[in-house]
Amino acid sequence: MASQLQKDMQMLTSKAHAGRKAGGSEGPNVSAQYIHQRFEQLEYQPFYQSFEFKTGFFSTAKGHNVIATLPCTVAPCEANIVITAHYDHLGGQPSSYYAGANDNASGTSTLLLLAQSLKQVNRRHTVTFVATDAEEKGLYGAKHFVNELEVNKQTILNINLDMLAPNKRNRLYVLHSKQTKFAVELLKKQPSESLRVKIVNSRYKMQRLMDNPRIDWHKASDHYAFAKENIPYLYFGIGEDKNHHTKRDTLESLDFSRFQLVVNFINNFMVGLLDTPLEATN
Rank of each mutant, 00 (worst) to 15 (best):
Ala75Met: 11
Tyr140Thr: 08
Asn170Val: 10
Lys7Glu: 13
Thr246Ser: 12
Val66Ser: 06
Ser59Ile: 07
Met11Tyr: 15
Val262Thr: 15
Pro277His: 13
Phe53Trp: 08
Ile159Cys: 00
Phe145Thr: 04
Ala85Cys: 12
Phe256Ile: 05
Gly239Cys: 04
Gln120Cys: 01
His144Ile: 03
Tyr98Val: 02
Thr180Leu: 04
Asn147Ser: 14
Ile35Pro: 00
Leu114Met: 07
His223Asn: 10
Leu70Thr: 07
Tyr140Pro: 09
Arg208Lys: 15
Lys242Asp: 11
Gly237Tyr: 15
Asn80Tyr: 10
Val30Tyr: 09
Ser253Glu: 04
Gln190Lys: 10
Lys242Ser: 14
Glu52Gln: 09
Ser50Asn: 11
Gln190Pro: 08
Arg38Ile: 04
Ser109Pro: 02
Pro46His: 05
Tyr97Glu: 07
Phe265His: 02
Lys168Met: 12
Asp88Leu: 04
Lys168His: 11
Val30Met: 07
Ala101Ser: 03
Gln6Ile: 11
Asp162Tyr: 01
Thr110Asn: 09
Leu274Val: 03
Asp133His: 05
Lys62Ile: 08
Thr73Ser: 07
Gln4Pro: 06
Cys77Val: 02
Thr246Gly: 11
His125Glu: 03
Tyr97Gly: 03
His89Pro: 09
Asn230Met: 01
Ile156Trp: 05
Leu261His: 13
Phe39Tyr: 11
Glu148Gln: 15
Lys188Gly: 01
Glu229Thr: 06
Asp162Lys: 06
Asp8Val: 01
Leu274Ser: 02
Lys119Val: 00
Cys72Thr: 08
Ile238Phe: 09
Ile215Lys: 03
Leu254Arg: 00
Lys181Glu: 15
Asn160Asp: 04
Ser31Leu: 06
Asn147Tyr: 12
Ala115Cys: 03
Leu149Cys: 09
His86Gly: 05
Asp241Cys: 09
Gln45Trp: 12
Glu43His: 15
Thr60Ser: 05
Asp222Ile: 02
Tyr44Lys: 02
Ser221Ile: 06
Gln116Ser: 13
Leu261Glu: 15
Gly107Gln: 05
Gln6Lys: 11
Lys205Thr: 15
Leu186Cys: 04
Lys143Asp: 08
Pro277Gln: 12
Asn282Ser: 10
Lys189Leu: 06
Lys7Asp: 13
His64Glu: 05
Lys15His: 14
Tyr173Gly: 12
Ile238Ala: 13
Ala227His: 02
Asn102Ala: 02
Val146Met: 04
Ala183Phe: 10
Val127Glu: 00
Lys178Arg: 14
Ser59His: 07
Lys242Arg: 14
Phe51Cys: 03
Leu278His: 13
Asp162Cys: 08
Gln154Ala: 05
Gln116Val: 09
Asn230Val: 00
His125Met: 02
Leu113Ala: 13
Val130Pro: 04
Ala61Pro: 05
Ser194Asp: 15
Gly100Phe: 01
Tyr233His: 04
Val262Lys: 13
Tyr140Val: 06
Asp275Ile: 01
Asp275Thr: 01
Glu240Asn: 15
Phe58Tyr: 08
Gly23Asn: 09
Ser96Ala: 12
Thr108Asn: 03
Lys62Glu: 10
Ala75Pro: 10
Gly27Ile: 12
His245Leu: 08
His36Ser: 06
Phe58Gly: 06
Asn158Trp: 06
Leu149Ser: 06
Leu175Pro: 07
Tyr48Pro: 02
Val184Leu: 09
Arg258Cys: 14
Glu52Trp: 13
His218Asp: 15
Thr155Gln: 10
Val74Ile: 07
